[in-house]
Design a protein around this nucleic acid. Structure first.
Lengths: 358, 358
DNA sequence: CTGAAAGCGCTTACAG
DNA sequence: CTGAAAGCGCTTACAG
């Protein structure tokens, strides 16, 4: 039933195609119809200019007639590089990642590269690396690493320097292309703003991360203002867990300003504060981070720092494409790929923060 | 610099590898070390039992020694089927889709299939189909279609019946594997529940969808209760747009119960209601749909119907895998793939709904 | 500008 | 059980 030697020359009629390509025309079929050789076809596909006008027309007609579409898999095998981008990320449900991936998808579609998702096993270690390896085995044209929780080091070192790659977020890597979200700066600014509103200090509730630039910005702003920093409170990615934290914080009348590691946590905190009988922002100000889609809809609307995730995703693809074109053209490999582009967030003050009640 | 004929037999030393595979060992290299033929290697890879014990050991040792990993691209070319799953979906940022994709990712990883995302162009038509085509050109082992806004028909008809596929959501398709989310039933139940709470009618705010099973369930529940149905109000996927709708609804003292097409819209409505000076649930009850991660954190926590998106995603992969195994084993192609599995949602009553104030 | 040849790394009848 | 051969659909030197 399946294909066997000779099958295609004798007309691959047979049964139903086993897969989508099935009996789609091959480059050889088109070459025959256009009366040119296969290599000429190949040249035409890569750059029509390399073929004489006459053949060009014949080929175009044949392609049209047979509705030919080159087989990307065969191409990938010959080139040892498939025309696709793989995105490596941990849990894709988290807001920032979803948005970033969306931006990547949009731009990738624009340049005609499909994207494949390589989920980094949250348990890390060997399991995560085996994921990475198996994605690399597919020879993607390039990889985009979303590194919002800094599991990067072990992954980055697995990716050959010759492989186009861009990292979004994470600690700085030498000789790699990277997009920096300036979280430290934003956190610093938000904290300072809260201080300006008259709050004596601001409490920080942190989201899981090995290295937390947001916490660092907060701490530094406090330190610069000569305000002692309360111990940061750690929570999970699950907003529900922040409710209890909010409630406890609400029981302490001295806390009047809380800065959360992300908007979802901020929302959980606000719920907890409400349960503790405290009003936002009258009794306590709450600020988040990210500008989640629902932040402006929250009750009250949440003050936060807007992160340009999807823009970062789009930019990552653009950067990656440059590198890919470089390797395709065999030029400047690896050398000039050191990039560190900033995509800064900005403060958006809504109604969840207010001057300290005197 | 690049590969040229003979390169691999003469030792492909040369420069840096151009891509990740670069100078990875091929099946031929391993065969040489193990002192067996390439076909024997191939047989071993597919099913070690088909090879004599002696060779089996030699091969295992050689694989280990060279750290050999088969090239999935070459395999895909030979088999005209790549070991990967492509997921087709419109805007992946929307809650249900993100969750579903997460489930797919988790299960796909378990069975060792990478997933590639094919974003369906929201503008539909030819643009969308060209996306589909180019994904199909990659010969995925199977496809999962997330059809939460019913753009399905034109896509489904493009996918050969011989291609393993499972559809999640959407209107029923003959002779296809499909997972049904029972939204009609859930919407019916929610509406009836609201009526039981004493509300004279329930208003419906609908999310964009060509065919809206949720609206149908709502309408039928009203009709069965002999309650006239108010005109449904259409909104967008953007929760912010629901604020204004909530405000307007809030100005009408006769509305005491609102059912939203999804949780995010419900949240927007609640915000609008608040702005209109109405309290939830004291003045008006609001129910959503989906059980968004933030629903239980909302102020007040949102009554909704919990949808098992990630479970649906996982089940889809399981169903797909069965089909894939069928085609790999050349059996029962296409015939027995008619499946219609239900994954029902369930009502979760939280604090945003209450008996009508007498 | 163009074609014949060889190669990419696998798989699958076929004939021992 | 196993190897030699041919094939999957492309690409790229090489030599006109």
């Amino acid at each position: 039933m399946a294909r066997y030697p000779g099958t295609h020359t004798t007309g691959r009629g047979g049964f139903m195609p086993r897969t989508k390509r099935g009996n789609a025309p091959s480059i050889r079929d088109v070459a025959a119809v256009a009366n040119v050789s296969v290599p000429t076809m190949s040249r035409y596909l890569k750059d029509p200019e390399r073929v004489s006008e006459k053949k060009r027309e014949a080929i175009a007609a044949a392609i049209e007639k047979l509705n030919y579409r080159p087989n990307p898999i065969a191409r990938a095998l010959a080139l040892d590089m498939s025309e696709s981008i793989t995105v490596m990320s941990a849990d894709t449900r988290l807001y920032g990642r979803t948005q970033t991936i969306f931006g990547i998808e949009r731009k990738a579609q624009e340049i005609g590269y499909p994207i494949t998702i390589c989920v980094l096993d949250p348990r890390g270690g060997e399991r995560m690396l085996s994921n990475v390896r198996s994605c690399l085995d597919r020879s993607p044209a390039g990889v985009i690493l979303i590194d919002f929780d800094r599991l990067t080091d072990s992954v980055v070192s697995r990716i050959p320097a010759s492989t186009p790659m861009v990292i979004i977020g994470g600690p700085r890597h030498e000789r790699r292309a990277q997009i920096h979200l300036c979280e430290y700066d934003s956190a610093y600014a938000m904290t300072r703003r809260l201080l300006e509103l008259g709050h004596e200090t601001v409490h920080y509730v942190s989201v899981p991360a090995d290295v937390d630039a947001r916490a660092d910005g907060w701490r530094m702003a406090l330190s610069d203002a000569k305000v002692p920093a309360p111990a940061p409170i750690a929570t999970t990615w699950d907003a529900e867990d922040a409710i209890e934290i909010g409630r406890r914080l609400g029981e302490d009348p001295s806390v009047t300003a809380i800065f959360a590691g992300n908007d979802e946590v901020a929302m959980g905190l606000m719920r907890g504060l409400t349960l503790a009988g405290r009003r936002v922002p009258d009794d306590v100000s709450v600020a988040g981070f990210d500008d989640h889609t629902l932040s402006k809809v929250w009750n009250p609307p949440l003050t936060t720092v807007r992160q340009r995730f999807s823009e970062a995703g789009e930019h990552a693809v653009a950067l990656l494409k440059e590198q890919i074109d470089d390797v395709v053209n065999d030029c400047s490999r690896g050398e000039a790929w050191t990039v560190f582009d900033r995509i800064a967030g900005d403060l958006v003050e809504r109604e969840s923060t207010a001057p300290r009640r005197s």
